[in-house]
Design a protein around this nucleic acid. Structure first.
Length: 855
RNA sequence: GCCCACUUGGCGGAAUAGGUAGACGCAAGGGACUUAAAAUCCCUUGUCCGUAAGGACGUCCCGGUUCGAGUCCGGGAGUGGGCACCA
């Protein structure tokens, strides 16, 4: 580094301004006249920030500082999503208490985050594992419980018989427990559910009002909720097949029109009829046993081969009375519809595959409008068409037939029109220690009751033992056995804790009352919510965002809050990726362990040949992480921030590169050196550049820059904003002030510094000082552009022949079509081109393009 | 498997509303400064043909709409995210 570069001491500069901002409490709320709530998804305290954090928090900070400069009262808080499995895994593996582990991690991460210079109001810091947060969350739980929006039901969980505990899906690898290696089975547990399906309709419909959300997220939510309009119908079971009074099976279908193409009925393995059959059939019993060992996720289910077992029972077709064989099938979900489907092979691909496998009849009942010839189907036909082979439905369209079938079903009293959602109720029970305790007791008289408000918060016991496996709360009699405070009766506490999605589904409300005892029914919520701009990863597109929307609607429905959506604007940023390397043995290699020798990559210590794989999301296991802490240490926060913002558009993945960070550093140092060489006298900041003396070229370029940066920031194109700022910097680097008066340059530079301040805030404060300004740049108003400086008198007119560019002619702006045509046709080059041809057509877009069509 | 997104030079990317493709940057090459190197500064850089002037081609692939397509429509390929107990 050269001598002059050494002057740019990022550690000194950044530390200095971070302290100043904190001393002046610059980022705490002074009033709420013009509120703007900026929120980034709060992190899980893993212990160290990673590049993904640096990216998302930089994006949020740019917005927060930009809005602040625009005169908004910006709320920009930060907290910790501090319950969850990793703390418990650390407890099991390293014998450290989850609370201590978490606390230490938060301390570390907070220091790291602070070194980034983000404009957080740390006075409002919250942590979901703290008593105050638990207390408020338990209040919410009880309110929802009392409103019948929380209930208990049986559902399946992944059971590890060796660890004697429930495993998360990600802890089950190829059907085995990740630690124990035991074969995982489904186990039926009585668990707590939140009635999100009661809100399926508003959750779906209100998506339309979220016009500041990315379209793809809304589509994903819409598909997740999955509204289906169809019919529910009651199929009689053949009289001599009736068992234990089960004389019918209820099915849901979205295609009642295809009823005459039905050839079988399939029920879920956990359907009540299957369970009844299992009592008397070894075959059925075995089938269900196998099913319990099979897939757990929907992905597995879709990929697994479709299997069925004929039950020897038949149901009766509602119209032609033909018998329909009943199968138990592994692909039928008890959680969707009625847990039973009517199979129409010709018009549903899954049914088609199933029919082929079990030799069931395939009857086509819809033919598309065009085909007249009868052809054998080689796959299911799900399109529109005309009904055939369907008795009274023949010649109807699909829509007409649907209505007709529903009408007749209703008339016969064996069915009706129905709407089903794919969305399932939210299972909020976790058989784990490190989560928010569920404030419920089971009293000895059989009553299930919420605990008294005076007992809140119900905290976790600290003296727990992880060595026995399972949930430590189960093995903690002192905590588990209690009494009912009202009656004095004996009671047992609920030992399940809450899903951490519950914690994160309302935290944005807690920031508003971070230091008080109440949350809900607060006028602050109306003032600040919905969050004006929420920023986070696309991986949360469905679950976290849908659960948050649900909690708001649920609390609204019981008059606890009066907002209807949590997040007005949503922005989803891409991931941070980095190249991965493997050696000849297929082992992942850290990039810093690689040296280049004669353009071949080898490992520094082992000398083994290394090859570049591809750029992937940074992860510890693939050894392609770059530690932000050392980057900030070596290059500074502003350099890291500028790098994060340059090049890649925020919504796309960003590729980490060493040359990229070097490039950002070079830019900052260059700016720094330029400013340091300027000599302004002490009174310069008080003089405004005389408009007449302010050369039009500098003014024009400045206003172009203001326009471009403002519009780019407004549309989240931060990379374009950086490009515009660099472009103007390239201009002023070589600018020579006229007449020994530098007030024009001073004014332009001042505005440029304000514009770069949200991106590189520490640097901007220093530059502001160099420009002899007294106040902090963080308190400056955003510059405005004036249209009169943006218009150009001349414009480049493109002359095309058959749509291909041939010429560019500079013309005066604002000519009419007629004038443009005359101008072009009189142009010597155009005359030359048209020499021996005539044009057949001329298209004129004034000030832009003229296209001559010659054939 | 299902749902969603993305694909533009050697690389990251830019391109109001369909109207000059490649802004800004990285890398590379050449030059200046230097005893030398680093740093810095200047120039060149989509591909192909051509000494040049200039020409042809070019936004993942195939097809369509249009005077005109990176942009709109249909089909396909590849990559990434989610799939309900990771957060």
């Amino acid at each position: 580094m050269s001598e002059i570069n050494l002057i740019y001491d990022h550690k000194k500069i950044e530390g200095h301004w971070q302290k100043k901002w904190e001393e002046k409490k610059l980022f705490s709320i002074k009033n709420i006249a013009n509120p703007y709530y900026v929120l980034e998804m709060f992190p899980y305290p893993s212990g160290r920030i990673h590049m993904g954090h640096v990216r998302v928090y930089t994006l949020g900070d740019v917005l927060a500082r930009y809005k602040r400069a625009q005169g908004f009262d910006v709320l920009h808080p930060m907290g910790w999503d501090s319950f969850g499995m990793p703390a418990e895994n650390a407890a099991i593996e390293n014998d450290i208490h989850p609370r201590d582990w978490t606390k230490k991690n938060i301390e570390n991460m907070k220091t790291q985050l602070k070194s980034m210079g983000i404009s957080y109001d740390w006075q409002r810091e919250i942590s979901t594992c703290e008593p105050a947060y638990i207390r408020e969350q338990q209040k919410i739980f009880i309110k929802l419980f009392n409103a019948n929006l929380i209930y208990k039901k049986e559902s399946w969980a992944n059971w590890d018989p060796i660890e004697k505990s429930v495993l998360a899906n990600e802890q089950v690898i190829d059907g085995k427990g990740w630690r124990s290696g035991a074969t995982i089975e489904k186990k039926l547990l009585n668990q707590w559910f939140l009635s999100i399906t009661k809100f399926a309709k508003p959750l779906l419909e209100h998506l339309e009002d979220l016009d500041e959300w990315p379209e793809n997220v809304k589509v994903m939510q819409k598909n997740w909720i999955g509204k289906s309009v169809g019919a529910i119908l009651n199929l009689k079971i053949k009289s001599n097949d009736i068992l234990n009074n089960i004389n019918n099976v209820e099915v849901f279908t979205t295609r009642p029109d295809t009823i005459f193409g039905a050839s079988f009925v399939a029920i879920a393995p956990d359907h009540h009829l299957s369970e009844e059959l299992a009592k008397q059939s070894i075959e059925v019993n075995n089938f269900i046993k196998e099913w319990k060992k099979s897939f757990i996720t929907e992905e597995d289910l879709d990929k697994a081969p479709k299997n069925g077992l004929f039950t020897n029972l038949y149901s009766i077709h509602p119209f032609d009375n033909k018998p329909l064989p009943i199968y138990i099938a592994n692909f039928v979900l008890s959680s969707y519809g009625t847990g039973a489907v009517i199979g129409v092979p010709a018009h549903d691909q899954r049914d088609f595959d199933f029919a082929k496998k079990y030799n069931l009849k395939i009857t086509q009942v819809v033919k598309d409008f065009k085909t007249t010839k009868k052809t054998t189907l080689i796959e299911a036909y799900a399109g529109e068409g005309t009904l055939i082979n369907s008795d009274f439905l023949n010649d109807m369209t699909v829509k007409e037939a649907k209505n007709e079938v529903i009408k007749r079903l209703e008339k016969k009293g064996i069915g009706k029109k129905d709407i089903k959602y794919r969305l399932r109720d939210w299972c909020a029970s976790r058989q784990r220690y490190w989560g928010c305790p569920i404030p419920i007791i089971y009293r000895e008289d059989g009553k299930v009751l919420p605990i008294e408000e005076s007992e809140l918060p119900l905290e976790l016991p600290d003296d727990v033992d992880f060595s026995e496996g399972g949930n430590p709360l189960e093995n903690h009699p002192k905590w588990k056995y209690t009494t009912c405070k009202k009656t004095g009766m004996k009671a047992i506490r609920e030992t399940d804790t809450l899903d951490t999605f519950f914690d994160s589904s309302w935290y944005y409300l807690r920031f508003l009352n971070a230091n008080s005892d109440s949350n809900l029914k607060s006028e602050l919520i109306e003032k600040w919510c919905p969050v004006h701009q929420y920023v986070g990863g696309i991986e949360h597109a469905v679950l976290h965002l849908l659960y948050s929307r649900f909690i708001v609607k649920a609390l609204n429905s019981i008059n606890e809050i009066n907002i209807n959506e949590p997040f007005k604007g949503l922005f989803c940023q891409g991931m941070v990726c980095h190249k991965t390397y493997k050696d000849v043995d297929g082992k992942w290699i850290f990039p810093e362990d690689i040296i280049k020798k004669d353009s071949i990559l080898i490992h520094r210590t082992t000398g083994k040949l290394v090859s570049e794989i591809k750029s992937e999301k940074m992860s510890k296991s693939k050894k392609n992480i770059v530690d932000p802490v050392s980057i900030i240490e070596n290059y500074g926060a502003d350099t890291a921030r500028i790098f994060m913002l340059s090049d890649s558009p925020p919504e796309r993945n960003l590729d980490w590169s060493n040359s990229g960070i070097e490039g950002s550093r070079k830019f900052i140092v260059k700016v720094w050196n330029f400013f340091n060489k300027l000599k302004f006298d002490d009174k310069i900041s008080e003089t405004n550049a005389n408009e007449n003396k302010f050369p039009s070229d500098l003014r024009k370029k400045l206003h172009f820059c203001i326009e471009k940066v403002t519009k780019s920031l407004d549309s989240f194109q931060y990379n374009v904003a950086v490009a515009a700022l660099r472009e103007f910097a390239n201009y002023f680097f070589t600018y020579k002030p006229i007449e020994n008066d530098s007030s024009d340059l001073h004014e332009a530079l001042s505005k440029w510094v304000i514009m770069i301040s949200p991106l590189a805030p520490h640097l901007a404060e220093e530059l502001w000082k160099i420009l002899k300004h007294k106040n902090m740049v963080a308190n400056q108003k955003w510059p405005e552009f004036e249209n009169k400086y943006l218009v150009d008198d001349n414009v480049n007119l493109i002359v095309q022949i058959n749509g291909k560019k041939k010429l560019v002619i500079k013309i005066v702006k604002g000519l009419t079509k007629k004038q443009t045509q005359q101008f072009v046709l009189e142009n010597a080059s155009v005359i030359e081109i048209l020499k021996d041809k005539n044009y057949k057509k001329i298209i004129i877009i004034p000030d832009r393009v003229v296209n001559l069509v010659i054939k």
